[in-house]
Design a protein around this nucleic acid. Structure first.
Lengths: 200, 200
DNA sequence: CCATTTATATATCAACCGATACATAAATGA
DNA sequence: TCATTTATGTATCGGTTGATATATAAATGG
């Protein structure tokens, strides 16, 4: 039921996608409400009525990002048969996504609130929490590799997960600096040489 | 010769160090002129008279950062006898510096203008240029390792340098997220396992 | 038809941004 | 002494920030 009052003139989902795109491209503080309302083609009271405030809009946009952009890497992480292949798929898919010319370079969760003001520490902590979740998923996949026997028992999965997570962070910055897809995959090649038991 | 007019009431070098510290902590756009003048204890016309404008002050502060904080890693990179030991020293010293409680976490050159506004693209490009210089120095050190025989002939030094550079970028973000010194060194351990010929 | 509800458009709000105008203070050179 | 030069303190500039007050438009329920 669409309710009683005057119907909304714009598509809320489309507006949210627009916000995701802008925040992805320019970060939280780098995107102004005027940028958003202009890109959405609506007035600022309409935006506030639909999304409460800038921070709420950002959180909703990031949630959308996490559901859409994060779906493929998450699925790969689970479906690939070994930990090694899962991590390689994660890195390769991320490298491809970060250099997709149809979307802004790098990861919104990593870059969206890099050095933001103290007054927006809540936004920063929100993204940091998502990063911790991603790290935990990666570590869990490595632990699964140990329990399934494709990773040596006694592997320091915490350190290994932290390492590949760090590489992913670095890839985001590299893509922002204009690194090509090939360059990122070359970096991934080297990173995979650090895999336990690997000969480089 | 201190010149003719009324002498400056404040220490320009100390003010520059204050600016470096603030920019390091909060980034270019995250630091306001009011933040700067307050921390320096001077009025805004004095700041403008001494440093022209915000961007010029930032560039000078970053130059100071590069000279001071960058000195030790640069020296290690040159003085360590092998490429492998040089890279390890670079990573370890950076990990220590990024987690030094006396200074802000992470690297100013990496984090100082992460997703800044389009109108400040000049600042972003300035830092990107410094990062390219650092990358070139790292690659040159690896090339030296090849010519001196401690790295196998045919080693892809470009890819290897890009990889360790990427790890350094990632370490900056990790330290911003509150990673401890031990955690960073564990990541460095894993990164070094990717070294050519290494058994991990 | 009309009360109610919701969304819109216009016009702003106070706070902060980077940057200056202006008058005054404090030094030097002649 | 006094013109010149430079720096300082105060007050403020126009512009932008995130967020609203207000009045009107457009739907539903009775």
């Amino acid at each position: 039921m669409p309710g009683r009052g005057r119907p909304r003139r714009f598509d809320r989902d489309a507006a949210l996608r627009t916000a995701m795109r802008l925040f992805w491209e320019r970060g939280y503080e780098g995107t102004s409400m005027t940028d958003l309302t202009t890109a959405m083609g609506i007035g600022s009271p309409s935006l506030y009525a639909a999304f409460s405030c800038k921070e709420a809009l950002f959180r909703e946009a990031v949630a959308l990002y996490n559901e859409t952009e994060g779906a493929v890497p998450r699925r790969m992480l689970h479906e690939e048969p070994t930990a090694r292949r899962a991590v390689e798929a994660l890195l390769r898919i991320s490298a491809d996504a970060y250099t997709d010319p149809a979307t802004p370079p790098g990861c919104l969760v990593v870059l969206g609130a890099a050095n933001c003001t103290e007054e927006n520490q809540g936004v920063r902590e929100f993204l940091a929490g998502l990063r911790r979740e991603d790290l935990a998923m990666l570590r869990a996949r490595l632990d699964r590799g140990v329990s399934e026997g494709d990773l040596p028992a006694g592997t320091d999965t915490t350190a290994l997960a932290a390492f590949y997570n760090t590489v992913l962070y670095g890839l985001s910055i590299q893509s922002r600096d204009g690194a090509t897809r090939t360059e990122l995959h070359d970096i991934v090649d080297t990173a995979l040489a650090a895999w336990p038991g690997q000969r480089s």
